[in-house]
Design a protein around this nucleic acid. Sequence first.
DNA 1: ATAGAAACTTCACGGCGTATAGTTTGCTCA
DNA 2: TGAGCAAACTATACGCCGTGAAGTTTCTAT
Lengths: 237, 237
Amino acid sequence: MGSTGGRRERLRAETTAEIKQVALKLMASDGPDAITLRAIAREMGMTANAIYGYFATRDDLVTTLIKEVYTALADAVDTAWAGTPAAPPAERIQTWAHAFRDWALANPEGFRLIYGDPVPGYLAPEGGAAPDAAHRVCTGIAGLADAAWPHAEHLYAHSAFEWSDFDGALLDEIRPAFPGLPPAGVALALRIWGRLHGLVSLEIYGHLRTQTVSPGKLFQEELAQLVRSLGIEPEDT
Amino acid sequence: MGSTGGRRERLRAETTAEIKQVALKLMASDGPDAITLRAIAREMGMTANAIYGYFATRDDLVTTLIKEVYTALADAVDTAWAGTPAAPPAERIQTWAHAFRDWALANPEGFRLIYGDPVPGYLAPEGGAAPDAAHRVCTGIAGLADAAWPHAEHLYAHSAFEWSDFDGALLDEIRPAFPGLPPAGVALALRIWGRLHGLVSLEIYGHLRTQTVSPGKLFQEELAQLVRSLGIEPEDT
DNA sequence: ATAGAAACTTCACGGCGTATAGTTTGCTCA
DNA sequence: TGAGCAAACTATACGCCGTGAAGTTTCTAT
């Protein structure tokens, strides 16, 4: 039988990895539009059709890339969060947010790939391209909300949210991780998420460029206000 | 001389309008990817190349569409704002925000056209595709900030913003319109903008679908908190 | 050694944007 | 009125794209 570790399989895995890597390189250098089977194949000295042996379709390849890039983003913010276990909540939240923005600025194409309509005719599969990574990021933010919850709870007393308002798979991750966080806290997490995403998204897509020359300062100030709105006082400067 | 109102010019204007209208129809029915010169021409019983008589390039057409759609969005929110001249600030702001979200939900393709990478290889021209409309929307939000400023001012006392942080053309619109609004107020406007944009953008691109089944409720709650963070108490319900 | 599977190529089709060149149409002015 | 001209439009072609079908090579398991 074709046992694990056979030469055939190893080559196959290597080629698969090379396809993805070349695709990411093309995306980084020439934008998401450059992710074409023919360009990848050209770069690899192959025929475009050879790629069909590894990915059923171009959209399949793109979906895989999205999963990979999204996971990288999730890793980046999780690492930032894990790096400040003992810091006060305000500082932890700002660290997380800056990790998010920094990643986006360092990987603008990746950000577009994840959060936009990145590639010509690409149609995301049922339920989103990378629900797992999306949940990881969201769970990360739930961590922010959980850290702030003792201070913020009284501000969100009459929230209309119930568990049934949320996606089950998401709750399966969040509820065990943060048993003290009620529905209002999860909603708070999503709203924080929207807030951070909003400014970064405007910046990455260039919609702030026509308005301010200091997007970083704007983000900084928004963060300070966000922290304040959580009932925590931000540190100065 | 070919005086104004000549038959030639009228036909030309009609054809130009039809091209744009067909393009918008295709976008609405089949998504932004459907905006191809060949498809438009097919629909009009013409050759794709005939369109080059009206638009220098496909990207030119797309830029024109973006301007048009962006203007429609600006009209929608301006109308909502103008419709509640005497209401309390909290209500006006919520009306504006709902007009924005409702427009986005009713014109998701238009939203993507404006705020995403909408069409295959489209590259926005220098300075953005529609800086005028972008400034109009931003000026509208400055109106929100201006309305809230008397209540909110003390919250943003030590803002680090100065006039030089903003785009000159934007300030040319905002400063005369809201002479009482300092740099910190303009920054507040941009941050409000990012906040509203963030949730709507996540919703339109389907990134909330994997997390909550009640995006409207989430938006509602974010709005209530936004108004509260401006120093105004939101109405109940 | 050989049958078969896997990897890869070749060829083909239709769709895309757009450059070039040619044709028709309608207006203007002598 | 008719000659000339410009605008509107078509035809053809090129090089991209994704992808299907069929053929060829190469490796592997028996």
